[in-house]
Design a protein around this nucleic acid. Sequence first.
DNA 1: CGTATTTGACCCTT
DNA 2: AAGGGTCAAATACG
Length: 331
Amino acid sequence: MMEEVINSIRRACVLAQNLEQDLPNLANQPAMMSLSIDQITEAFSGAKEKMLQFSRQNQTSDESPPTLVHETTQLQPQMDATLMQEWLRSSHALTMDQLFQMHQFHAARSTLQIGEMGGRDGEDNFERNKGPEEMQGINESSSRPRRRSREANQEKRKVMVPAPQFGNTEMPPEDGFTWRKYGQKEILGSKFPRSYYRCTHQKLYECQAKKQVQRLDQNPNIFEVTYRGDHTCHMSSTALSSVPLQQLLVDITQNNSNTISSQLSPTMNLSLHPGGGSGTAASSGGASASRFGGDYPVVDMADAMFNSRSSSNNSMEFLFSPEDKSDPKIE
DNA sequence: CGTATTTGACCCTT
DNA sequence: AAGGGTCAAATACG
């Protein structure tokens, strides 16, 4: 539970970092800056809410509800708070100060309502009776096999992201993952087409993560990015700014408490050289260790490292083991 | 020459 | 049936 709070805050911080980076570009784009700020505000609000929730339930009753997180995340609340503060102070001192001010400023008027997508698809059509079993022949004439198309019940996370002010504005900004476009479609009622991306490493790790990008007709400078599926690869080869903060952000805004915690490994972040670190420690070997799961707090460091290498995937295959996917079914 | 994107057809969901 | 999502051949790109 508490690590949820920490994660939330962390996400907010990542967002804030992003904003800071884009500050020069956003300077003359009040709309987008406002959007970005709203996102950050929203993120912090979510974190705060969770924290209050947590502390409330922690001191009144001790019937800690069985959250769906790993058991390794059972940490002492005090400890968490301390470590969290430590982390906040050590790695993001300046920004954090401003951010908290910002937060207080905007706390009252959180206006952004992303993540209110059509989430009413509670039930899934698990077996869409895929009738013709394409008798496994090499009959490539007319009927295409088409295996499992729409993965059953994949939750969608929707987020708005401002278009980059420089370079190719046709493309949404980097989000920390490498995507490969596999389709584009005109959408009814939208001026702009919607593009479909899937994770570049889908083959390697059966990474089912996908996203679709659509720029709003109201404001072409803003993309609506919808994420689907989880990354089973934890790769960040072309990361410009950070992690898939969209996912994270949306998670906050819709109280989707269980999806994210399974993707992040909350505990290892907490062991971030609290205090003595002085920032630049662990730069040589340390980061590689955290590459697999929880390198989120060290995003800048990780980025610095990853950015230097381009996208040569095959050489890294052994580095990115399929993680803890305890699902041996391999088709 | 291998990899990524484009694009129309195909198929699934509503 | 319409609209949306995906496939895969063709093409572009490095």
